[in-house]
Each structure stands twice: as C-alpha cells, then as structure tokens.
Amino acid sequence: MGCLCSKNTKWTPGYEEPTILAAETPFTVSEVEALYELFKKLSSSIIDDGLIHKEELQLALFKNKNNRNLFADRIFDLFDVKRNGVIEFGEFVRSLSVFHPNAPVADKIAFAFRLYDLRNTGFIEREELKEMVLALLHESDLILSDDDVEMIVDKSFKEADTTGDGRIDPEEWKEFVSKNPSLIKNMTLPYLKDITLAFPSFVVSSEVED
C-alpha cells in the first residue's frame, strides 16, 4: 500500500524510521507512526521545525508556555538525550516507551530515580528532595509550613535511606518503590496502548505491516 502521508516526513531533522523504533521499544510500527502525528502537533505548536522545544513541552503540559516548572524541566532534560536543547522524534519515542504499560518496571524505576536525582550525582539527596517538595508547593494550592516540609522530607528519607548515609542510592530506591508501588504510578500512561485510536488517520496511511 502506498503512503498517503507527506514525503516531507523523511527530511524532518531527527526523524527515525518507525520500524527501527518499534524494534527497540514496546510500540508497534503503527503506534510509532501514530506517535509521529502527536510529535508533529507538539513540535509545531510554537516553532514549526519538527523538534520539540522546552516551551512547546511546557505549553502541552500546562497550556501556557511561560509556566516554567522544575518537573517539566526534568522531563525535558531526560527526553533530550543528546543534550542539544530540543527533543527529536527518536528521543521522544524512546523516552515515552518507558511510560508504556508493557515497559519493564525496572526501566520505570530507573527513569523515576533520574527524575529525582536533580544534580545527576547518582544519588537522591536530602536537599534535592526538599527543593522538589518546595517546587510542588509553588505550583499547587497546597500550603505547608517549613517545619512540615522538613518533617515530610525527614520521614521520607528515614524510610528510603536504609543505610543511613544521608542519600538514596539506586538500590535503596528500587527497594523503596517495591514497597510503595504507587510512587511510579505516573510512570505508566494507559493512553500509549490506545495511541492508534487517538490518531487513527495515520494508521490508514501506514507503509509497513505490524
């Protein structure tokens, strides 16, 4: 079957073949193609250059491109694997694949660890956790006293930092999540199983059989 989609696809910077991306991720070829529809929408919302800029991610998450947020910044930084300030299609698909319901739990645990490891030291440190709690308070209506914040951070650290060395290492994090699986609930997006339903038009034009 011929492709009804634009031939311009092949010249989008960072575009990678859906067959290759499907082979490396839990997505089928049709799902990768449907994700390309989503990617095109996100990557053209402010600057139509086929790349997702930080403001475009913020616009999609908050409906407001000026609403800077520590956590959205972390997501952007982790998706921007090449660290060139933009998210390319391949980076988008590979990063989103961790959020697929069928992705290995170990990958979700590792990705969440990296989210919390703000300074990329290989550990989650107390100051990082406090900074994130304060950022959450800033973005929400929740009001907590500084004593309450200290108490929450202390309690969380006491539970997770089993060796008591003042930082949470990947092994401690893994154990902590296994006891508290709700902590990685946001690492699974049920939408990803229905992505071809969300963008059905592209499936008709698919070049490759799954």
Binding site: A60, I75, F99, D148, I152, K155, L183, N186
Partner: peptide
C-alpha cells in the same frame, strides 16, 4: 489524606509537570 502524613515522593509524583497524560489531550 493529610499531606504531612504523606511521603515526599508521593506528593511530588502528583505534580502537573510530571503528568504526561496532558500531552495526549486534544
């Protein structure tokens, strides 16, 4: 739930910035 009794990670995981389902909203 009383936020003070919650785990910091649980609180943080509710951030809108980490809620990628928003990407799929039309």
């Amino acid at each position: 739930a009383n936020p003070v009794s919650m785990n910091a990670f649980e609180l943080i995981s509710k951030s809108q910035g980490l809620n990628l389902s928003s990407l799929f909203e039309k």
